[in-house]
Structure formats: C-alpha cells, structure tokens
C-alpha cells in the first residue's frame, strides 16, 4: 500500500494563500492535523487493485450532453448587479488588482 505524503504546515499555508484564507497559527496546526486524518482515511482506497481500471473522468456514466447553439434571454442588468458589493454605472467595481 502506498502511503500518502504527509501534509506539512507549509502546504497548509500555501493552500490557504491560494484560497485567500487568513489562518491563525493555531488554525494552521488544527487544519494540518485534520487534513492528514482525512487523507489517511482516503488512503484505504489504495488497497484496491486499480491497475486494470481507466482513470475516472466523471462519476456519472454519461457522455456528450450537448445543447443546440440557440440564444436565450439574459438577465436584466439590475439583477446581474443585485449581489455586487460595489457597482457603478452598470459595472461591478473592484479594488486595485496588481
């Protein structure tokens, strides 16, 4: 059985940064431990012999669900902007990007 690589504190900090999450020192410790527990549990699957199994692209055995190229009515602008934290003149307004 392949043993999963342990999740380090640095890995948790990196993922938190990518997900734009601000974690306290204590939280980093908690999540490092919890993530490792989850991975250990999922590692049970490693007991299965999957050498003859194609990688799964989707959990549902369906393919080619397609629609015709037809235009439908969009939402009114005020609906689109309804949940915007900030908007001006029909645009979403966002803070400095880079």
């Amino acid at each position: 059985m392949v043993k999963f690589v342990k999740i380090s504190r640095q890995a948790v900090e990196h993922v938190a940064l990518l997900a734009r999450l601000e974690l306290s020192e204590q939280e980093i410790g908690t999540y490092t431990e919890q993530l490792n527990t989850i991975l250990d549990y999922a590692a049970i699957l490693e007991k299965l012999d999957t050498s003859e199994v194609q990688p799964t692209a989707h959990a549902v055995p369906l393919h080619n669900v397609l629609r015709e190229d037809e235009v439908r009515v969009s939402m009114p602008q005020e609906k689109v902007l309804q949940n915007a934290p900030d908007a001006e003149n029909g645009f979403f307004r966002v803070p400095k990007i880079v």
Partner: peptide
C-alpha cells in the same frame, strides 16, 4: 463564431451595454 456562449444561452454578440449579456450560469 457561435451565436450563444459555451455553457449558457447568453448571446456572444460584441459590444452591448455592460453586464447585459449575463445570466445565472455565466455569472
């Protein structure tokens, strides 16, 4: 060069007033 967007029925037409070719899927 399609008439509608890749995953929803909003028009792909260039221009148009801002945020008017938008639906629940593409937003």
């Amino acid at each position: 060069a399609t008439k509608s967007k890749i995953f929803c029925g909003c028009t792909t037409e260039f221009g148009g007033e801002q945020n008017t070719h938008v639906c629940a899927v593409c937003s």
